[in-house]
Design a protein around this nucleic acid. Structure first.
Length: 269
DNA sequence: AAGGCGTGCAACCGCCTGGTC
DNA sequence: AGACCAGGCGGTTGCACGCCT
């Protein structure tokens, strides 16, 4: 059975939005708020697909959007975040108030890619262009399903090394980016600090404390409290011998607790 | 002036994920 | 457990516009 279309395509407009359509959409959302996108077009009297309405609102009509050129500081922040998390445009957009994922994605493809190439940096890997290509995807498993004590301890060494590298890389990015942007946007919350999960149950969404006992999940550290990416209090994946995962309290930072760190999530294409 | 070409950006498409029943 | 649905995301497309020849 094929996937059902998101809306009745036969009776929907496509292509550029007219002023009148924009006005209708804005008026409806002002009156009723963002709600069910599927039913919104009909309710607002628009011959548009719900997805199209959502996109138009998020990328163009939202009142908090910052139009205009990207600043140098924003450029650098995007580059650094991209080097850390790859093409996760929505996550990157989450750190740039007033910018949308689509805008950042377009800006990356049209400006930053070229800028990095001019600097002699591969925009996909953030490495010098003349550096030999490396395997793009590496999956490192340090599950404790091995029976040998030796293998287990080796796994734990690798695990610690990865932890340290992630922490230092993250700290570098956070510090650099924060310094640059804070000067221009003092109100911007740039607490990009990322900590490993505390063994203790963290108080959800408490302010990030370096050296303290509390920690936030990755999403919260990126300022995405209450987003679907937030894993505080929710997830710890434990990999059983069957390979299946189960969830308990706590946060599984990039699979640290589960013992499976999938570098595909950090892959730079 | 006009045609070709490159660039930028809005919008679409298809897939994935999480929630609900 | 699995089917279905809505929302969200990243990749891609297509059009408008400006520059160059």
């Amino acid at each position: 059975m094929g996937r059902s279309p998101c809306c009745e395509k036969a009776h929907t407009n496509k292509g550029a939005w007219t002023k009148e359509e924009d006005d209708r959409l804005v008026a409806y959302i002002r009156a009723h708020g963002e709600g069910c996108w599927r039913s919104l077009p009909k309710a607002a009297g628009l011959l548009r697909c719900g997805k199209s309405c959502r996109l138009r609102w998020i990328n163009y009509l939202r009142p908090d959007l910052k139009r205009g050129n990207f600043t140098e500081a924003e450029d650098e922040l995007i580059i650094k975040l991209h080097s850390l998390i790859g093409n996760k445009w929505s996550l990157i957009a989450g750190r740039l108030p007033g910018r949308t994922d689509n805008e950042i994605k377009n800006y990356w493809n049209t400006h930053i890619r070229r800028k990095l190439l001019n600097r002699g940096i591969d925009p996909a890997t953030h490495r010098p262009l003349n550096e030999p290509a490396q395997e793009a995807t590496t999956t490192i498993s340090f599950t404790t399903t091995t029976t040998s004590v030796e293998e287990e301890s080796r796994g734990s060494i690798i695990k610690e090394e990865i932890k340290e590298k992630l922490i230092s890389a993250t700290a570098f990015v956070c510090t650099e980016a924060k310094t640059q942007v804070q000067e221009r946007c003092p109100d911007l919350n740039l607490e990009l600090g990322i900590s490993l999960p505390s063994q203790n149950q963290p108080d959800h969404h408490q302010p990030f404390k370096t050296g303290g006992s509390r920690s936030l999940c990755f999403a919260c550290s990126l300022g995405l409290q209450n987003s679907k990416d937030c894993s505080c209090n929710v997830i710890v994946s434990t990999v059983g011998s069957s390979g299946s995962t189960s969830t308990k309290n706590g946060y599984d930072f990039l699979g640290m607790k589960s013992g499976v760190l999938d570098y595909r999530s950090l892959e730079m294409k």
